[in-house]
Design a protein around this nucleic acid. Sequence first.
DNA 1: ATTAATTATAAAATAAATTTATAGTTATCA
DNA 2: TGATAACTATAAATTTATTTTATAATTAAT
Lengths: 292, 292
Amino acid sequence: MNTKDLAYFTCLVEIKNFSKVAEHFKVQQPTITTAIKRLEKEFSTTLFIRDRKHNTLEITTSGQQLFKRSQIILNELTLAQKEIDRINREQLVLGLPPIIENHYFSKICQELADAQILNRLTTVEAGSVSLTKAIHEGTIDLSLLGSITPIKDDDLIASEIERQPFCIYVSNKHPLAKYNQIRFKDLVNENFVFFKQNFIHNQAFTQLSQQNNFHPKIIFKSNDINMLMKLINRNLGIGFFTRIVNTDAYDIKKLTLLDANAPQFITSLVYRRHQFLTPSQIQLINVLKNNL
Amino acid sequence: MNTKDLAYFTCLVEIKNFSKVAEHFKVQQPTITTAIKRLEKEFSTTLFIRDRKHNTLEITTSGQQLFKRSQIILNELTLAQKEIDRINREQLVLGLPPIIENHYFSKICQELADAQILNRLTTVEAGSVSLTKAIHEGTIDLSLLGSITPIKDDDLIASEIERQPFCIYVSNKHPLAKYNQIRFKDLVNENFVFFKQNFIHNQAFTQLSQQNNFHPKIIFKSNDINMLMKLINRNLGIGFFTRIVNTDAYDIKKLTLLDANAPQFITSLVYRRHQFLTPSQIQLINVLKNNL
DNA sequence: ATTAATTATAAAATAAATTTATAGTTATCA
DNA sequence: TGATAACTATAAATTTATTTTATAATTAAT
């Protein structure tokens, strides 16, 4: 059975017009007609009901079922191609959310260099949401991800690296700096500086806000953590970040949250379940697991 | 790309001999050579290292990766064929472990008849283990299953129907019949009659035995629940079954187990995640869910 | 009624896969 | 060492599969 036929078929299911499908694949229209007939013969079934009275193309139940399987098959093929391409290029592509990169990556560069991995390693910096998508699509093979609940995905293998609480970051000039711990509800009158787009931080922040029934006031948003830290340093606002954010360069204090149900920032190492791991990928995974 | 090539390829990975693969598919040997070359060209990679020095056929990393994807693809194809076959025969095949069948099935026969389903329904009676395998392989589409832990399987959708405790079944002539509740450890000197092969009951029984540090004495084993009930009825032994086993025809009492961690018999309704449900399958699922 | 849009069919052409025949490589064994 | 067996590769011929071309048929729209 030719997978080209499945491609024609899924396309026809989607756009429901033989001629347009032919156009899409740059073939003549009878090609599609015969391809569908071939599939119908192969599976001994009717895939479409050609109702020209009402000018509709109805998909049969068998057709729906084959559609599901075809999508999986075509996806497996593109995954295989992408995976093999990277194997041949001896490319190691690692997804890294910026916050995780800042905290962990410098730590293990030496180990990566020692293991002869660093020179072949390309990192892709992006948010955890788009990195998850990229792994699914086969654009990258391996990623560190941040999340506030353990990563559960049928198609992925995720192993937890570490859990860190979220903390409140205040200038040492701020009245709160005399405390070491604080409850989120005590921050009701504070001004926050916060991430513009970071999905995980937003999730955690929203969760705590809801648990405490108030909307914290955010006076400035940026995607740049250093910019935010500078603002906190000048005591223009306070911050809410996972504990792994580094304060060495600033006169800033981290306060622990006392809230019982406070979310945690979970760092996980993730790859596709059906990815055959190359020796260098295994090496990379081991370096990451052993040094983080 | 022809899926036949993937079949040749996976077979070659497994038996590592071009001629034998050709024999297996009843084609000539050059067919396999050219098929593999085709795949290598298609994916722009080397799949095998033909080491004739050592008379071995080594699979490359790309080959390993393609092997994983090929297996999934070929499996999807056979699943599709089986699913479509049943759709065309308008066949509704339901897997039923005998114990569940005895308890639930008679209850809902009327509803199934009313919904015009009963006449098209074929039941497959087998243990939960082989029914799970049958669903995976596409031999059946839908099954009730018994288990003592919730069913978690990436490829399946399982919805819990009911949880029932396991009970101790004793003759009303038995000294224990004066109690309503009992701890498992108090049964250390009792004689049990038990299932020969029932995996779920064996699991539960073993678990309780281990928790209580003794090996219960089993004096007779059978796969026939009625036979076992007759023996209990005659006070030749006591039984350990899920509470759903019916005692109406016997002079038998069910005792509740007081053990805190006593296992439970979970009845679930299960089907493949990527199964496109036909209208009559949805009907059947609804009847089962609403009436159990 | 004419036209446009659509899908189907048949024959021809092209492309792809398989077989046949044979060559080359290596291991085995007398 | 040379003959043989087991295995894989290559090339040409054959067969099979797919696509195109040309055209017919159906229906909706104007």
